[in-house]
Nucleic acid binder design. Structure first.
Lengths: 406, 406
DNA sequence: TCTCTTTGTCGGCCTTTCCGACAACTAGA
DNA sequence: TCTAGTTGTCGGAAAGGCCGACAAAGAGA
């Protein structure tokens, strides 16, 4: 087989199903012509550099209804990170068709892509060449092994987000038996410059063709707190930070100005775990704002457990829930809820958006929060505190199960 | 960079300059609309299987003038071997434009490709991963090394004939210092299934872009004699023979019949070292046939030294030189010359074509046979005896120098 | 809390490949 | 024939990578 081809230097358009699987099943892609709200305040949170100076016009419009005129699913040609570019036209909300694609929705997609993500352990990323394949991944994504063979082994041919083809030897061995990727894995790790804490996503489409994507872990300094259990404790050569995924303050100012003036504009969104989306489906926002968030209201929110790959539903109590009446953004609903979480780990994520939480019912939690509704909360499953610092990562195993703790 | 891509299964069209460098600088590509002679007798020599039975029509036309209507420079998708497909229309010779492309011609091509071929030693092909780079190759083809570094080292990015990209680490080290390819080389050898005796061709175009091609050594049983100094003495797993490059007797019969009837036809020619071309520029043939080859005429011919990569010019004396007056091909000029070579190694290549030799002058040999005229003899630099058996390989170093021995 | 399953990590060992040393060979004087 | 330069081959050494063993962590009872 021929050797590596030089990667195309330009940004690459990605199949939206592959894109969604790479971004994580919790990310939603707005559909063209749907109605959304753009929150310049949330946009500013994700900018890098000094806090931008915004005009009074922008500050007077904390949420701007828009029609989505186009959606580009893209991948960074250098890092393989997926991101999305939204083309938005400010508009008065009207009841046009308003829907989000939803990979976990009730409507079964015949072209559905199954996927599985795993955070790389140090053994996966650093040691001489192996990847421990979780059983569920081997069973649900990889082609069936011949377990009569000794040892059972196969070669996987997998396409990455740039169209590059990789081969991995998949073997089932050891005592106790486990699935491993050996030959070819090390090359992939080195080529993609993966380190412990990054994730890989294995995907399989309806034809059995396999794909692989990567998700970079958050870097130190880019978000608050240590972003993963395997992240290097200090940045001794492990920091790869480059500001990617952050827009400059200047760009945000320009975008917010255009939006406030009613001019068409574009925004780029990197589906980083822990980043709160600043373009949200109008329906969802309105539902959140129609609720009177009295102090003492019990709420729940789906997040990642810090030391786990599973999604967990935390509960808390609303302390206050009124529109901002001070600071630059008077009347803004952005992070209007102040919540006291039952879980002490969440103490520094007390300010959230109303559409990120759901009122906790007294019904059994499992049934009031079925798996099929996971996506309802997924787009805001990352949290940030009032300073926009990220508190914990969404490590995003796509096989994550939703469970609400008592 | 992305990993191996599966090779395209179809035959690949190749840039004619790359093609020429891979085939060896001694091979000429006829140009479209040029006049050539087709020799069915030479075509038969290269067929495999039983000797085909030819009609009296074919036998009565040992050389057929044709116009070249199209030329396809191609590469075998499996072996990377280059070959050429000629589309020929039988015609009476007329003085149309008649020229051959000539890479070594006097006219300097601004897009010229420089190339260097080397026969793989066992160390190059078998051992763990190294390739000894001849100094001339490193100096003339590779980008300049920084000899201040210790050791001087660079990574070469090289495109193969299928468009696949390979990387080789090029290092200058050891005592005494020499150029080596290390990392990446072994993968290339394994991928291309190269063995000692095969050749690789390094090329560089005017933009500095590098290419690599392979030339398979002749296999035992496919040609006469041992075809190389490093070829395995017996076929213990080393034989890769598959008849490739040989047409079946049936195909040759069909082609020859069409040609004799004046119908357009196609021929495929593999530029294997040692194979005599059976489609020859008309001008060259006519010049050869216009000479009266009296017994005793001293002639010289450029061939490969058996134990060397250099081209050498051998001398001999014509014993007889008349058109065939017996056998099936009455009146054929094919291999009409019987020569007694000064060099005993050539004893079993006594029958050659008139256009393969040149009358030896008494002038100093070097000056009567300048480098610029090498190509004049290049298309017949391989030899075959009366049975069409190949006597010695044209190992084809493209930097070969021409020297006539005393 | 106990047990069973899953999977992260380690040291051992085998394979690959990188290296300088040496010697064979060639070209030129 | 001699000499200087080039390059093929070898064995040692280092690195890479595959392996089972063990144990830690997690899930379910």
């Amino acid at each position: 087989m021929p050797p590596p081809r030089p990667p195309a230097a330009e940004v690459r358009h990605v199949d939206s199903r592959i894109w969604r699987a790479c971004a994580g099943s919790s990310v939603q892609i707005p559909t063209v012509n749907s109605i959304v709200y753009y929150f310049p305040q949330g946009h500013v949170e994700q900018s890098c550099g000094s806090t931008p100076l915004l005009s009074s016009l922008v500050l007077s419009r904390p949420l701007i209804p828009c029609v989505v005129s186009d959606v580009h699913c893209l991948a960074d040609p250098r890092t393989d990170e997926v991101f999305i570019k939204l083309f938005l036209v400010p508009d008065e909300p009207s009841r046009l068709p308003n829907q989000f694609l939803d990979v976990n929705g009730e409507v079964e997609d015949p072209d559905k892509i199954v996927s599985f993500a795993k955070i790389l352990t140090p053994s996966d990323a650093n040691n001489g060449g192996g990847f421990s394949v979780p059983r569920f991944c081997a069973d649900s994504i990889f082609p069936p092994l011949d377990y009569n063979a000794d040892p059972p082994v196969q070669t996987l041919t997998v396409t990455d987000i740039r169209g590059g083809v990789w081969e991995f030897r998949h073997i089932y061995r050891g005592t106790p038996r486990r699935h491993l990727l050996t030959t070819g894995w090390n090359k992939f790790v080195n080529q993609k410059k993966l380190i412990a804490g990054d994730s890989v996503v294995f995907m399989r489409d309806c034809n059995g063709k396999m794909f692989i994507g990567v998700r970079r872990a958050l870097k130190r300094g880019e978000g608050g707190g240590d972003s993963g259990r395997w992240r290097e404790p200090t940045g001794g050569g492990a920091t790869k930070g480059d500001g990617r995924g952050r827009m400059t303050a200047e760009v945000v100012v320009e975008v917010a100005e255009r939006a406030a003036k009613g001019l068409p504009f574009e925004v780029v969104y990197y589906p980083r775990p822990g980043w709160t989306d600043f373009v949200v489906r109008a329906e969802l926002v309105e539902a959140g704002l129609n609720i009177y968030w009295a102090g003492g209201t019990r709420v729940k929110m789906a997040v990642e457990k810090e030391d786990s790959s599973r999604m967990t539903c935390f509960q808390g109590t609303v302390i206050s829930g009124a529109l901002s009446d001070s600071g630059p953004w008077i009347g803004s609903p952005w992070r209007m809820l102040l919540v006291a979480w039952d879980e002490p780990d969440l103490e520094n994520v007390r300010r959230v958006n109303p559409w990120q939480v759901e009122i906790a019912t007294s019904l059994p939690l499992q049934s009031s929060f079925p798996l099929a509704k996971k996506s309802k909360f997924s787009q805001e499953s990352g949290l940030a505190d009032a300073e926009g610092e990220i508190m914990f990562p969404m490590t995003g195993l796509t096989n994550s199960t939703m469970r609400c703790q008592k």
